[in-house]
Each structure stands twice: as structure tokens, then as C-alpha cells.
């Protein structure tokens, strides 16, 4: 029985041990040889981030999705509330270059 237990321990223990070794060494390899493995996130593309409308936890699986809103309607609501939008990229570049009349392809 003890020999049988030892055999079982060997059959299960060795793959587990080498699986763990592979996991550890591949993590070290990733840090060592894989440079810059990350991409830009939302904050690289947006100055204001996500403006949440409805965040609810632990809902029923069959809860309905919210309708998606036409972004122009959002713009109209914002204007009505006095919100000042962030500058567009054209405005940013023009002010940085100190040029007033910038011809953009529209």
C-alpha cells in the first residue's frame, strides 16, 4: 500500500512540480526578454474617462441592457448644463504651435 501511495505521489507530484516550475520560469522570461508588453489604455485616449450612467452590482442575469444614447444628444444636454468640453486635438496643436488659422482637411 505504501509503495502504491508512493507511485501515486510520483505520478501526481512530478507534473505538478514541473508545471509550477514552467509557470515560475516563464514569468521570469517574460520580465527578462519581453520589453514593453502593455498598450495604451482609456486615459491615453480620453481626458475625461468614462462617464458612468448606470452602475449596478449583483443584478439578475436577465436584466435588460440600457439603450445606447446618441452622442450628439449628450452634447446637447451638456451644452444646456453649461459644460465646457475639453479642447479638440486641432485646438491643442494650434495653441501649442501659436498659429491662429490652421487649415484642416474636413
Amino acid at each position: 500500500m505504501e509503495d502504491f501511495a508512493l507511485v501515486i505521489g510520483f505520478i501526481l507530484g512530478v507534473p505538478a512540480a514541473f508545471g509550477m516550475a514552467l509557470l515560475i520560469c516563464s514569468s521570469i522570461l517574460n520580465k527578462s526578454n519581453n520589453f514593453g508588453d502593455s498598450k495604451g489604455d482609456l486615459m491615453a485616449f480620453s481626458t475625461s474617462g468614462i462617464q458612468g450612467r448606470n452602475y449596478r452590482d449583483r443584478i439578475s442575469r436577465n436584466t435588460n441592457l440600457d439603450p445606447v444614447v446618441n452622442p450628439t444628444m449628450i452634447a446637447a444636454d451638456r451644452e444646456a448644463s453649461g459644460y465646457t468640453p475639453p479642447p479638440t486635438i486641432e485646438e491643442e496643436i494650434a495653441s501649442a504651435s501659436n498659429i491662429n488659422n490652421v487649415q484642416w482637411h474636413k
Partner: peptide
């Protein structure tokens, strides 16, 4: 289960304009 609804204005979405460089490299 969770519900998440929202809006984001993203004026700076970059995509590379050259097929020489792969998208995954330019995004990194």
C-alpha cells in the same frame, strides 16, 4: 451579474497608418 452603462469621449485614439509595422507593435 453587473450592469455597466456609460459614455466616453475619446479625441486621441491612435492607429498606425503604415502596414510595415504590425498593429500590436505600434500599440505597445
Amino acid at each position: 451579474y453587473y450592469k455597466r452603462s456609460g459614455y466616453a469621449s475619446m479625441p486621441w485614439v491612435t492607429t498606425d497608418a503604415s502596414t510595415t509595422l504590425s498593429d500590436s507593435t505600434s500599440q505597445r
